[in-house]
Amino acid sequence: MSAVAPSSAAAAPAALPSARAPARRDAAARALAPRVVLGLYVMFLLVPIYWLVNMSLKTNLEISSGMTLWPEAPTLDNYRRIFTDASWYSGYINSLKFVVLNTAISLGVALPAAYAFSRYRFLGDKHLFFWLLSNRMAPPAVFALPFFQLYSAVGLFDTPWAVALAHCVFNIPLAVWILEGFMSGVPREIDETAAIDGWSFPAFFVRLFLPLVAGGVGVAAFFCFMFSWVELLLARTLTTVDAKPITATMTRTVSAAGMDWGLLAAAGTLTIVPGAVVIWFVRNHIARGFALGRV
């Protein structure tokens, strides 16, 4: 039951029985098509990742001496080097620091703003909204140099704060956009009833309203985490030593003996793990979240 039922349901939209195609075999072929498409696509997604993991378990000698589809002598040496060398594992800690800071700042300021946009009209609201979104559209390359100078001038250069604040430029607009979508889905009668019942605005917002948009807050946090975690250009430009993120550390694996492919692959594999964990936690909200709460 378990294996057959979902797939036949999956095929439902594509395999509506047509009046002109009575043949049973035709319908069966059409029910199979979606599974084939999805299967091929999933393979296309997973094979490059598998190759990275495969390489991370090989020694450099095995990588350079010939192609093997799986590691013949699997070794965890590459991972051991990352976990014992401070210049490697501190990169992960630095990355997590600015990602968490950025997510907290973005959500903290975006929540009240999204509420304002979803509940009121006010002077210049539409222009303000587009101005905010326009920052999401600015190429990071445009900001790299001025950010470097700005954060050097205020003494934040090479701290997690510099990267966290820099990432706010594109994460805050996104968080406002997502949260506004989710909040607009909550009927305004709730606000009015709470006001009549004598709730103060802060108490209402934190204790009544926030639980109603909890899904949206989770999705917004997911997106802030995602875009801050994957960004390299600004994170690399704004740090040198103390706050260098793992992604920047990875760009320097060229040694005198050539590329250290095994180590690079191991470091890359480890950067996939936090993302995979986060996805697992939000998997049920993910589809709606990607539509920014507007479905």
Partner: peptide, 27 residues
């Protein structure tokens, strides 16, 4: 269009599909 609409396949394909989006761009 070819994604399952119910059952265990939904979560599984959502997680796999979202995976590339969460990988740092230089990786």
């Amino acid at each position: 269009l070819s994604m399952p609409r119910q059952g265990w396949g939904v979560s599984a394909s959502l997680v796999v599909l979202a995976l590339p989006l969460l990988i740092p761009w230089n990786v």
